Simulated assay, not measured.
Amino acid sequence: MAVVWSNDKIMQLIELFQSKPLLWDCSIKQYKDRNKKNDAFEEISQVLNIPKKDVETKIHVLRTQFTREKKKMSAKKTTGSGAIEKCKWIYYEPLEFLLCGATTSGETDTMNKTVDENNALESGMESEPSQSPRPNATTSTSSRKRNKTDESNEILEVLKSAKKKMDEREKKDPFDIYGEYIAAELRSVKDDQAVTQAKYHINNILYELKMGRYNTYGYQTASSHPSSTPNNVQETEIREIERHETNRLDALRDETEDSAILNLVNYLSDESTQ
C-alpha cells in the first residue's frame, strides 16, 4: 500500500532528518558509516511508522528538489534580475540546513557533489524501465519484411537446388546412373570387410569386361563353344538394374520438386492472409 505524505508528515520527516546530521552533513566522520546511517533511517522509520525504504525515497526526492530550487535562486542572482524573490516551494526554507552541511567541511563543491550523486541515482531510477523499449509499429513492420525476405530467399534456394538436380539428371547417361546405384548399395552395407570384398569382385568383373569376357563372342577355352545364353541373361539383369535405378532417381526428383512447390504454395498462402 502506497504511503500518503501529508504536509505535516513531511515537515515531521524534515525535522527528524535534520536531527540526524550524519545523514546530511558530510563534514562529520559518521557520514561515511553506512551501518550508523542505516540505523538512523531505521529510527526515523519507527517514529513515523513508515517503512524505511519509503523514508529514504522521500528524503531523496526532497533533497533533489531542494537542489533544483537552489539552482534557480542562484540563477536569478547572477542575472541581476532585481529584487531577490523567496522560493515558492514550501519546503525550501525548512531544508536550508542542508547548505550548512555542505559548507562546514570547508569545501565549496561539497553540496554539488552530493547533488550529483542524488541526480545520478534519480536518473538511474528513471531510466531503468527504458532498458526494454516497446517495439513500435515501424520496427514490427521492418521485422516482418525481413522475415518475408528470408523466407523468399530460402524458397528461391530450394527451387534453384531442384532445378540444378533436374539439369544434372538430364546430363547423366546410363553409366552415371548405374554408378550411383552401385555407390548407394555399397553405402548401405555397414560391414567394411564385406564392402572391400565386393569392391574386389567388382574390379575383377571390370577387368574381365575389358578383356572381352562378356562380349557376345567372348574369349573361350579351346574346348568350349560360344554361347549367347549367359550373356543374354546378364544383359537382361543389367537392364533391369538400370530401369530400377532410373525409377528411383525419377521418384527422388519428383519428391524434390513437390517439396519445393509445396513450400512456395505455403509461402504465397501466408502472404495472402497477411
Rank of each mutant, 00 (worst) to 15 (best):
I10Q: 06
D54H: 14
C26F: 05
T114N: 12
N49D: 15
N7C: 09
L23I: 06
T103R: 07
T57S: 14
A40Y: 12
I50N: 05
L23M: 11
P129Q: 10
W89N: 02
E107H: 11
K72G: 02
P21C: 11
R68N: 08
M111H: 14
T57P: 01
G106V: 06
W89P: 01
A75Y: 02
F41A: 07
C100M: 08
K9Q: 15
K77N: 00
L23Y: 03
L16A: 08
T79C: 00
L16G: 03
E128M: 11
Q30G: 04
D25C: 06
P133W: 12
K70W: 03
S105V: 05
A83K: 03
M11I: 13
Q65V: 03
V47M: 10
M125E: 15
C87P: 02
C26V: 10
E122P: 01
G106Q: 07
R63A: 04
P133I: 07
I44F: 09
S132G: 09
S123T: 14
E93I: 07
T67Y: 09
T64A: 10
K72Y: 03
L16C: 11
A83N: 03
T110E: 11
L95T: 01
L99F: 04
M111F: 15
M125H: 14
N118P: 00
E107R: 11
P21M: 09
S19D: 13
Q131N: 13
S74L: 06
S45M: 13
S132C: 12
T108L: 07
A83Y: 00
N118Q: 07
S105W: 02
W89Y: 08
I28W: 04
T57H: 15
E93A: 08
K76W: 01
Y91Q: 04
D8G: 15
A40H: 12
S45F: 10
K70F: 09
S105L: 08
E96H: 04
M111W: 14
K37N: 15
K86Q: 08
E93K: 09
V47P: 01
K29E: 12
R68K: 07
Q30K: 13
A83S: 04
T57I: 15
K53Q: 14
P51S: 14
K20D: 03
P129N: 07
P133H: 13
S74H: 00
T64K: 09
M125T: 11
L22W: 06
D116T: 11
M125Y: 13
T67V: 07
S27M: 08
K113S: 13
D25G: 04
P94W: 08
K52C: 10
P94E: 07
V55T: 07
I59D: 01
E117D: 11
G106M: 08
E126I: 12
P129F: 09
Q18W: 09
G80D: 03
